[in-house]
């Protein structure tokens, strides 16, 4: 009797495979409330007017010169830091994986990359202010490396003969970045600070690909007559390219969504999309909440594109690496 009951129950179980999903429902409910609803709110908000009717009018927000400026600025910062951080990070990652860096250096850099890639935020901004801000420690040091032209008569004469007004230059500090228009509180400063978490992220994402470069590929190409330069052109770079592009996209997205560092560093003086959205949350600077949603939607769209492209490239990279 009990045997029959057991088999009957098992049959029922198999009849409804969806039953298996029941255990995931608490998680899904949580996600629906705190991730899906908020996203939907932004999405529907972006395509409805204040009366609730469907419309594309909100996309006009992108004609607003301030918004456009913010988007251009954000894209610029993201692209520059992705490039600078990516390039620098790649060279460092190459040095520690293929370049035969000493073991201690390898360990310190890879450990610290894990830390620094998640650094970001307010403390990072404070660190850069304390280090290379107007009164920062490094700035002070660089400012000290000055010389007085009066003590270098020959140079002064030379400059004077070139038409330079020597009397204006009593104190020259060639290392002080602020004499060259650098400011931590401007785009250049933002790039410098973002690079702090960008290049470690590059190291983290590109290291597996670099480690996947087989020594035998180099030897096989050499054996077939290739020079190291040809090996890089024909094998190493093409093999690495999906990973490099993918990692750069990741860096791009990482910078594009960043808020806290920029906020703490520049106090909102640089118009980034994320800063602009912050202002919109606080006080509806656009005067139309639905346009605010459209603004946010644009940001999500760019991020989604970035991540989708990243994962496609990643798939290609791993497929190659398998063989």
């Amino acid at each position: 009797m009990s045997q029959m009951f057991a088999t009957r129950q098992r049959k029922l179980w198999r009849e409804y495979p969806l039953w298996n999903w029941v255990g995931l429902f608490p998680f899904f409910i949580f996600i629906v409330f705190f991730l899906v609803f908020p996203s939907l709110r932004l999405f529907t908000g972006a395509f409805t007017n204040q009366e609730g009717g469907l419309t594309l009018d909100n996309l006009k927000v992108f004609e607003n010169p301030n918004v456009l400026k913010a988007y251009i600025m954000s894209l610029q910062v993201s692209a520059i830091t992705a490039f600078v951080g990516g390039f620098f990070g790649f060279l460092v990652a190459y040095s520690i994986t293929q370049g035969g860096a000493p073991r201690w250096m390898r360990n310190v850099i890879s450990t610290f990359s894990g830390l620094a890639a998640n650094f970001g935020g307010v403390p990072l901004a404070f660190s850069f202010i304390a280090t290379i801000g107007q009164t920062g420690i490094i700035t002070a040091m660089l400012k000290k490396a000055c010389f007085n032209l009066e003590n270098y008569g020959a140079l002064a004469q030379f400059l004077a003969s070139g038409g330079v007004n020597v009397s204006d230059i009593t104190n020259v500090c060639p290392l002080n970045p602020y004499t060259y228009g650098f400011s931590l509180y401007s785009l250049s400063g933002l790039v410098l600070a973002y690079t702090y978490f960008q290049f470690p992220l590059m190291i983290l994402t590109i290291t597996p690909a670099l480690e996947g470069l087989k020594k035998e590929w180099y030897e096989a190409s050499t054996n077939l007559g290739a020079t190291p330069a040809k090996y890089w052109r024909d094998v190493a770079l093409p093999v690495l390219m999906p990973s490099i592009l993918g990692a750069s996209l990741l860096l791009f997205g990482n910078a594009f969504g960043a808020y806290a560092t920029a906020r703490a560093l520049t106090g909102g003086s640089i118009p980034l999309v994320s800063i602009y959205i912050g202002q919109q949350i606080r006080g509806d600077v656009l005067g139309n909440p639905n346009e605010g949603y459209a603004l946010a939607f644009g940001m999500v769209a760019i991020m989604t594109l970035t991540i989708v492209a990243y994962s496609l490239l990643q798939r290609r990279a791993t497929r190659w690496m398998k063989s």
């Binding site: 087989k214 035998e216 590929w217 030897e219 096989a220 190409s221 054996n223 024909d234 094998v235 093409p238 093999v239 190659w320 690496m321 063989s323």
Partner: peptide, 13 residues
């Protein structure tokens, strides 16, 4: 000419 244990074919070609 050399043949390696791990084949070492260029994966991008």
């Amino acid at each position: 000419g050399m043949v390696f244990q791990s084949y070492a074919l260029f994966p991008n070609m």
